[in-house]
Design a binder for these strands. Sequence first.
DNA 1: TATATCTATCGTATTATTGCAATAAGAAAA
DNA 2: TTTTCTTATTGCAATAATACGATAGATATA
Lengths: 109, 109
Amino acid sequence: MGVTKTQVFTDRQNRIADLAKALAHPARIAIIQHLLKEKSCVCGDLVEVLPLAQATVSQHLKELKNIGILHGEINPPRVCYCINETVWQEAKAIFGEIFESEVAPNCCN
Amino acid sequence: MGVTKTQVFTDRQNRIADLAKALAHPARIAIIQHLLKEKSCVCGDLVEVLPLAQATVSQHLKELKNIGILHGEINPPRVCYCINETVWQEAKAIFGEIFESEVAPNCCN
DNA sequence: TATATCTATCGTATTATTGCAATAAGAAAA
DNA sequence: TTTTCTTATTGCAATAATACGATAGATATA
């Protein structure tokens, strides 16, 4: 998306945006929902569940891994993807904090 | 970003992704934080706060308005942007629900 | 060793996003 | 009416994201 001027924003603002970006695709939401609900975390199962090509799923998994939400565990010949509890809690805290805020009264309300 | 295959995902998955996408830029995070904390909601003030050109800020505001998070109130010659409480609560509920989930035990944990 | 299985990466086409200057649009005030 | 103030829109260039076929890599099995 063009060049986001990340350097003019705070680290925290950039981190929030990055975490949100990781969630900003229905396929990645589906992946996370699957890992939250189902016992299976094998890449191949995710490929079967998602109506996308294997290469595309692998790419989405990579993005979630890059941001830290997932980590992969090689279990030959498979790879298991799991939610990283630490980052998951970080995201929970960050979004929780934002949505906890009361909207300041202003000219509109 | 290429063509997201939205039609193969559920409405809810797409809605979550769309809301996340609205938060997926530090400038939009900054806008929301400003509206949450400061009394001012005038477009011009946001332009002063953000280190971006007026046209760029206007564009980010438009995106937040499109998703429903903000609504604009014309107050000639100014425009006040305010958080839409309904959509804000929707987003809070959606992200709250996701992050409430316990991670299902699988081969990794 | 040869084959089969599973996942990652590469290459590429297409579309989306970011950013800004310039300009248009709208309303109030002079 | 003309000017001024504020915000939206347009047009453009540059870069990022999505998707998938093809292929490489790594490991287990025959």
